[in-house]
Nucleic acid binder design. Structure first.
Lengths: 115, 115
DNA sequence: CATCGTTATGTATTACTATACATAACGCAA
DNA sequence: TTGCGTTATGTATAGTAATACATAACGATG
């Protein structure tokens, strides 16, 4: 038998009023919307249904400090979506914290031999 | 409206061969088994079905470096379960890492104002 | 004014997870 | 040898989350 592959996995969320509000899924979705300019393309790209992606965007816009995504139907390319500066700031800060946690976790790899 | 309550939540798991192996649920279960000396009491105490708790114990014993829990049916009090030294070491180390992540996250609270 | 790809929204179905329930085995002690 | 509380195990049910599917609206552009 080959040596077992052991690794850490962690997830960070932000709760608002004790309800999940923002986490890895939404962070990835926001990044993909930013890259593709479209909720539907972003959703497909990460293997998520459009409906779920749309619901996430709606909830972020509703409960966030201000809208994270501006989406418009119709027009030149049928419409599209754009991540607002607030949305971009949230992504950036979230990724920064995740990076710091990752640094901590990397230092603890010796623990894996215990498992 | 009252000021929204925002807080971080994170979870840490250890994957073995890319499958979830150990995480917060199992850590809590192990601690409760250690405290109560019984899988069933531990399960009830954390609102988990005995069947699930038992399955977790079995999987930990099967895929861990060595058994984390020794369980015995029958006997004085009907039987019981004990966390092995290896199991205790895993709990302790896991909690230590979680504590370190918590320290990092605490320092980032300013981020929450952005949400 | 027809076309296009997207946003927007509702309903039905599937997939998964966990619980609920039921039952047997176990081994000490009275 | 009966009773006890636990471990051990299978099957059925329920609860939830996600997808799948279907349809309408939208607005620039040719």
């Amino acid at each position: 038998m080959a040596k077992a592959n052991k690794q850490f996995r962690f997830r960070l969320w932000i709760d608002v009023n004790n309800e999940k509000f923002f986490g890895p899924g939404r962070a990835e979705l926001l990044q993909l919307i930013d890259q593709t300019g479209s909720i539907s393309k972003a959703a497909k790209s990460m293997g998520m249904s459009y409906k779920k992606a749309w619901a996430m965007v709606t909830e972020m816009n509703e409960y966030g400090k201000s809208a994270y995504v501006i989406a418009k139907p119709g027009g030149e390319k049928g419409g599209g979506a754009e991540v607002t500066p607030v949305g971009k700031a949230v992504i950036k800060a979230y990724l920064k914290i995740v990076g710091r946690i990752n640094t901590v976790v990397e230092k603890e790899k010796a623990f894996l031999d215990l498992i």
